[in-house]
Amino acid sequence: MKAPLILGLGITFFFFVPLGIYTNIFPFVTIGLTGAGLSFTLYSLKIKNDWKGFNRLQKLPFIGSSVVWIYRLGILGLGAVALYSATSFWADSPAYIKKNYAKIEGIPSKIVYEKATLKSQIEGTITVIINNKRLSIAPNPHYPIKNNVEGRHFLINYLPNTEWVMDYTIE
């Protein structure tokens, strides 16, 4: 497999991560981080000094192959960080598949609004602290969160390792 193709795959998988976070789809983030990490790691190991882009760099004076190694280590580091981040998502995968979520309930001691709104509904993510546990809740369009949630009872189901909120009820 050629190096540009591996880099393209890594970038494609890397786009799965924000898509999964924005749409609240857990498998997109898990597969995206894993695919990007593996692709970037393979790409950094696959780079040869005779690849066209690096051939031009090595011909420049005072640069030589040190830039190629710095570039290679940077891409390898990016792949390692992506793979390390994916481990907690893979640890939560059995709980996600079996729908065996951790639960927390109670009245939040503190609520932080990401984006203040003038409407009667909250648009941005809110962070609640219940029993010294901080969880971020993204409002679901089907179940919008009203502005007056202070002092109300929350029941939140979340994944234990990533603290990804799966569903919630506000009474």
Rank of each mutant, 00 (worst) to 15 (best):
M1Y: 02
L57S: 15
S120N: 15
V68D: 04
P18G: 03
P18K: 06
S85W: 13
V68L: 03
G106I: 01
L42G: 03
K99N: 01
N132A: 08
L9E: 10
I104Y: 03
N49D: 14
A138P: 07
I97E: 05
L76S: 12
Y168N: 06
H142N: 15
K103E: 12
K59M: 13
I129E: 01
L5I: 12
E171G: 11
L9P: 03
I21E: 07
A138S: 13
W69G: 13
L9S: 09
Y168R: 08
S39P: 03
F89Q: 06
L135P: 04
I11H: 05
L19Q: 04
A36P: 12
I47N: 01
H142L: 15
H153M: 06
V29Q: 06
A80V: 12
I63Y: 02
I47G: 01
K98D: 15
E123Q: 15
I70K: 09
T127H: 02
R72V: 00
I25G: 11
L42N: 01
S120E: 15
Q58W: 08
I111V: 10
L57D: 13
T41D: 02
G53T: 15
W51D: 15
F13H: 04
Y43E: 02
N161Y: 03
I104Q: 04
W51A: 14
V68R: 07
P27G: 11
L73E: 11
P141E: 02
E105N: 09
E163V: 00
N140K: 09
A80N: 08
I107W: 00
F13R: 03
I111C: 04
Y96R: 06
R72L: 00
N131G: 12
G37Q: 00
W51N: 14
G8E: 05
I31F: 09
W51C: 10
Y84R: 10
T125F: 02
I145F: 02
K119C: 10
